[in-house]
Design a protein around this nucleic acid. Structure first.
Lengths: 193, 193
DNA sequence: TTCATTTCTTGTCCCAGTTCAATGCGCAAG
DNA sequence: CTTGCGCATTGAACTGGGACAAGAAATGAA
């Protein structure tokens, strides 16, 4: 039950069994049906979630009413709007929604604080997770600015090989920052060679 | 001398004077002339720098040989390629270059570790800095995907009011992800109304 | 002061990607 | 079985922004 998340959190920091026990005891297991919105724009994000099973998207709605997907999270990924909400004390600008039936481990900011007090080494583990998150976002910015739509799509397929089977095309288009129609045209062009 | 950086690091965590003394004692003060490259692509980034005075850009060179600026750092900002280099143990894909004569406080990853051992509360402060960094990058991704060039430029002016006087237009264009020529056209259009 | 180099502007042509249909295709619900 | 609806495809017309070129202005070095 806890092996996935323990493996994930131990990736850059080695923990004693007792520390992992404390960690696990603070986690809340939750199942959520598909198409559930976990966080609405304007709310405070009061959770961080680790995806045990399922698929989630994080998106905002731009000035013209278009959804733009910032992140997909599948098995063994973390999802939250930590960067805006927590510590900044600002309401979130994003939505978080399940795309499939999901299982999560979740915890609140308060629980996280409690964890840091009981087992301070987790502070470091979460700092490094944050750094990786930053690296991924920076990479995405890089791609968004300097690659063509076709290149972005091919890279997406490489990076998330299973996701293109699991989610609707127009979600992928939204993630890539292109129109659903144009993605369709790219796909037929690729298929024809 | 240390008041700027102490104010900055104390923004979300309150430190005792002794803790700040430890911190300050580990910092290395450095002046660097303009047009100096602090980090080359392919190197490991072995520093984090706090800008006391001056202006720095962080950029990469894309597949077509174009420079794309990821970040400007001016007074009271941090600059590093921490996300890719340190902990990931991968050579950096970015360059960091001074645009003006600069004064920095710098420290190495090893020094940072030493700091965390002597004064563990800094682990938290740097985690929160990292979160803010992530928030800014995510915001930039948001803007890059869903705003027009004109909107991006106007927002840039609001967000960095002094920078447009300090750096060349083509650097700003590069930051906004548009060509220098097109930025020039945007500027004349804006001026004419 | 002058010459050179870098930066900024302006015009023309062009293309990647958008917008707006229209059509077709599952698939779930009654 | 069929109605309805969300999703994908395709085409035609349009546009934001890029590429290139050539000149103007600013900066700076000797």
């Amino acid at each position: 039950m806890y092996s996935q998340i323990n493996k994930n959190i131990s990736r850059y920091v080695t923990f004693e069994p007792e520390e992992l026990e404390i960690f696990n005891s603070l986690l809340e297991y939750k199942t959520v049906p598909k198409k559930t919105i976990l966080l609405h724009e304007g709310e405070m994000c009061n959770f961080e979630a680790f995806v045990i099973k399922g698929c989630v998207r994080k998106y905002y709605i731009d000035a013209n009413g278009f959804e733009v997907i910032l992140q997909f999270a599948i098995e063994n990924a973390w999802i939250s709007d930590i960067s805006f909400s927590i510590y900044e004390d600002k309401p979130s600008r994003v939505f978080i929604e399940t795309l499939e039936d999901c299982e999560f481990f979740m915890f609140s900011p308060e629980t996280k604080e409690a964890l840091f007090i009981k087992a301070p080494k987790f502070e470091r583990a979460f700092r490094i997770l944050m750094q990786r998150n930053l690296a991924v976002t920076q990479d995405r910015l890089f791609n968004t600015i300097s690659k063509t739509a076709t290149e972005k799509y091919l890279e997406f397929l490489e990076h998330y090989p299973t996701l293109s089977q699991r989610v609707a095309q127009h979600y992928i288009a939204s993630y890539l920052g292109i129109s659903a129609e144009f993605l369709s045209k790219i796909r037929t062009k690729i298929a024809k060679q």
